[in-house]
Design a protein around this nucleic acid. Structure first.
Lengths: 234, 234
DNA sequence: CGGAGGTTTGACCACACTCAAGCTGCGTGG
DNA sequence: CCACGCAGCTTGAGTGTGGTCAAACCTCCG
């Protein structure tokens, strides 16, 4: 059996958790475990017969490229997330690893067949797809909001939550999986603006930076405050 | 039978088209036809036991409200589209009619039961959900893109396509279902900027405005040009 | 005819972008 | 082990696009 479902860290949360043991065993036959190093791509826009995958560990980004070669990040994928454009002859977006990642991949056709064969899988993917939709709309809301301070603050809080083990408390100290450029293009800002906002937050005593990637939340209050409330004294 | 499926204009495209005749008849028992006037809301964020619906005619908007009461449009729904947050105890967004609309509504619980009972329905909704996700990412991309001119041009072209009967050709002349304010908050711009951009496009001879809502596409080329396609001779 | 909601237009200003220089951290090779 | 080089980041100065505020103008309806 090519997949080690029994020891899979996301076996309770991923789409395949909806399957019975026999069904999962059958699917595992068709699946492959795959590792991606930071920067490696799973598939590109335009690829036909793209893979589908459940992310087991690490982080991915879903991006589109405009004609002039500008990247735009459309979504982040966290463990237990599903990627792959079902029912589409070719992919519309690129999927790239942000950190070293482990995935559980299936061929496009195997996955579509499985969706037809196992109603529980279709339902689980529907659930996931609705969650993705929700996340996308959340990002839309965030990126459309006004000030750069708001955007960066919100993103920091979200990254802190994603980095935390418990879903309720944000992590106190964590590494950003994104470069400044990547943060910028998620939020519709430039590298420089991100950098300036982080400096401002550090000066204000809200965070501390350690190295390029490390973030320590000293005082989350101003972040929450900034992500929506206008304060005249600035 | 409460629904007139036989004469339904979207019977071939909506999610329910995946059902067999008997299945559809069974679902029709549980459904209700409902009309909404422009501005009426189907459900609000926070509502429990929200309705699910297939849009038969008209147009809807899906919106969220920030703490300070600012509306943000997250998606438009066109005929054959599906609204309703499955698997969620309460709604996260508002759904409001942009124009007088006809919907085919089902209670939250009936719909979830149907998804469990009819695998084909789950699959059809999965397909739709993926399309919605794609649309949301498309909007994300658009709203994150740089210039106001690009945004407005793209939106105009999209509205023209949506208003057209044939999927390939944009309509030559159509009415915007959105107010300036609504366009603005889809694109992350202000009313005034939208207005100025439209004036600019009219002066440039690309469009003509008739009344508040009417748009006539005189020369779509500058619109396409502005909306991302890079042409060296500028 | 009058009012209200939506729109247009103008003047001004600020926030974020651009361009440019210097810095930090990290990997590679001598 | 240090020197070098590169990629990513920070910081600064100046500019411009789109926001804000304000006033006038349509257009639809009662």
């Amino acid at each position: 059996m090519s997949l080690a479902c029994a020891s899979c860290p996301v076996r309770d949360r991923a789409a395949c958790s909806a399957l019975t043991d026999e069904e999962r065993t059958a699917m595992a036959e068709a699946g492959r475990t795959r590792h991606l190093a930071r920067g490696e791509t799973l598939f590109r826009a335009g690829d036909t017969d793209t893979a589908c995958a459940t992310l087991v560990s690490g982080a991915l980004k879903v991006t589109s490229f405009s004609e002039d070669g500008e990247e735009r990040i459309l979504a982040l994928v966290h463990p237990a997330g599903f990627v792959g454009e079902l029912f589409q002859p070719f992919a519309h977006h690129d999927v790239v690893a942000l950190t070293d990642s482990t995935l559980c991949t299936f061929s496009h056709s195997d996955m579509e067949a499985a969706v037809g064969r196992y109603p529980a899988l279709a339902q689980a993917l529907l659930r996931r797809s609705q969650e993705d939709l929700h996340a996308s709309r959340h990002l839309l809301n965030l990126a459309g909001r006004n000030s750069a301070t708001e955007k960066v603050s919100s993103l920091l809080l979200e990254m802190a939550s994603a980095a935390s083990d418990s879903p309720c408390h944000p992590a106190h100290m964590f590494d950003l999986p994104l470069t400044r450029g990547e943060m910028g293009n998620m939020l519709g800002l430039t590298i420089e603006t991100i950098s300036r906002q982080l400096s401002k937050l550090e000066k204000a005593g809200a965070i501390r930076r350690s190295g390029l990637r490390g973030i320590e939340l000293i005082n989350p209050a101003p972040l929450r405050h900034a992500s929506g409330v206008y304060s005249p004294s600035d």
